[in-house]
Design a protein around this nucleic acid. Structure first.
Length: 422
RNA sequence: GGUGGGAUUCCGGAGUGGUCAAACGGGGCAGACUGUAAAUCUGCUGGCUAUGCCUUCUAAGGUUCGAAUCCUUAUCCCACCA
């Protein structure tokens, strides 16, 4: 059977294991699990590493379990976070869970005969506990010294924000999850980002203590770009897998804009492309970097995986139009189609025709204030129909409206807004 | 519960009665150069009907001609003690 750990190592998806014994264990099918918090109604590209991890294990012939954190999501994992999280209501978590499950179901094969995937929700077993029972059954087996020594706890204790008892307890719940899956599913390995190390080892320890068995943990590196930013955010906004939250276009663009220094590494991490093919791409990139073959391959592959061929086509089409230069000759209908996934706003005719640029740009939601638009115009970063506007006091004229009903405004290089006249 | 410290614009962090829309740094945005890359350089970074006006320095009151700065109370955070 394929060696999953070797594959992960080759692809830059390996950080650490709790014990080298894992290699022997993986010679036979081993149930593997990873947890996902329903912090929002959709997973983000930041969750991608873990998803890929599970997928690689499944491809190597191991049954995998995706744990949706219906219970843990209500507490908030302090790992890697500098401040206390806002608590989510039960309803919120339930709602988010639906989306998260939907996302996960796209990556994992639930019908595999040899290594089927499965989704479980830890609320199903955590919800039954009373506080007293949990303390007796689980809390009893944890030592304060160990708990306080965890990196996630220490970091927070040293920070200004401090930490609540609620978040501090998080590791107990995650440890119990592992124990539960060990008992019920024969799960022997938990995987997660390296920030999960403390939580994972808590589970491994608990299993050893209560069941006398050896469970394993494996972590992935936290993926950062070459400037040290955690992967998965643009301008502080997470990139979601759900196209209602991050459009096909934005999703595609996120990957197209990957820096040269990161793109080959990302191809290994986020796609299943064979390594020799990636090397080939790297060679071509070195020869002609301006063609941006690697970025395109990455963006195409990712978008196709998440949004299918149709989603990819929409994203590519929009990118061509927007970065292709002139919009000369475009029909309103074409624009509307191309921009189906780009922010758009419908505005009444009388507010547009002869409306000042400043007012319309704000009304369209492109900029927050008129001052911002004014600044943009004077800096030369404001465009209508891809033509630079230089007069902040200018007004929209009739001939700017394509077919009398559509207008494309652009702030800077990459923020577009389609204005539809109604 | 006690004592002490703290809360400033996106973040960090100056500012301790007028010269404060608030230094500096980071981040972000824009422009130039490019390849929707990086690096570099330049500019911007509360709002407006804009050489002026308005709303800001946790919140509500108060002192004062004048408050981010002083007083009171509240809220939240941190540290130590119990």
């Amino acid at each position: 059977m394929a060696n999953a750990i070797e594959t992960l190592k080759e692809r830059g998806l390996f950080d650490n294991v709790t014990s080298p014994g894992i290699q022997k264990q993986l010679e036979s099918p081993t149930s593997v699990y990873a947890g996902f918090d329903p912090t929002s109604s959709s997973l983000q590209v930041g969750n991608f590493v873990t998803i890929m991890g599970l997928a690689h294990f499944q491809r190597a012939g191991h049954p995998v379990i995706a744990l949706a954190g219906g219970a843990t999501g209500m507490i908030g994992d302090p790992s890697g976070k500098s401040s206390e999280r806002n608590l989510q209501s039960h309803e919120e978590v339930e709602r988010n869970l639906v989306g998260v499950k939907e996302n996960l179901s796209r990556f994992l094969d639930f019908d595999s005969k040899t290594a089927p995937a499965k989704i479980v929700n830890n609320h199903d077993w955590m919800g039954r506990f009373s506080y007293i029972e949990f303390l007796r059954d689980v809390g009893k087996h944890f030592r304060m010294g160990t708990m306080l020594g965890k990196e996630s706890v220490r970091a927070r204790m040293e920070s200004e924000a401090g930490m609540s008892y609620c978040e501090f307890s998080y590791q107990l719940i995650q440890a119990y999850d592992f124990l539960h899956l060990w008992d019920k599913e024969g799960c022997k390995l938990q995987i997660g980002g390296s920030d999960q190390w403390g939580n994972i080892t808590a589970g491994v320890d608990l299993i050893r203590r209560l069941r006398g068995g050896e469970a394993f943990g494996m972590t992935f590196p936290i993926i950062c770009d070459s400037s040290g930013q955690k992967f998965g955010k643009t301008a502080g906004n997470a990139v979601y897998l759900d196209h209602n939250r991050t459009s096909y276009y934005d999703f595609y663009q996120f990957f197209i804009r990957t820096e040269d220094a990161d793109v080959i590494r990302f191809l290994k991490i986020f796609t299943f492309l064979p390594l020799d093919q990636i090397s080939e791409i790297a060679r071509e990139m070195a020869a002609a970097p301006e063609k941006r073959l690697a970025q395109k391959t990455l963006a195409d592959d990712m978008t196709r995986t998440i949004h299918g061929a149709a989603g990819l086509a929409i994203a590519q089409r929009a990118s061509e139009v927007l970065f292709g230069g002139s919009m000369e000759g475009m029909k309103a209908d074409d624009l509307v189609k191309v921009f189906a996934n780009v922010p758009s706003r419908e505005l009444p005719v009388d507010s547009i025709r002869d409306g000042g640029f400043l007012d319309v740009a704000v009304a369209a939601g492109l900029c927050k204030s008129k001052g911002e638009v004014r600044r943009l115009v004077t800096e030369g970063g404001f465009y209508i129909n891809n033509i630079r506007i230089t007069d902040p006091a200018g007004k929209i004229t009739g001939d700017m409206l394509v077919d009398g009903r559509v207008l494309v405004m652009r702030a800077g290089k990459k923020n577009y807004c389609l204005v539809k006249v109604v």
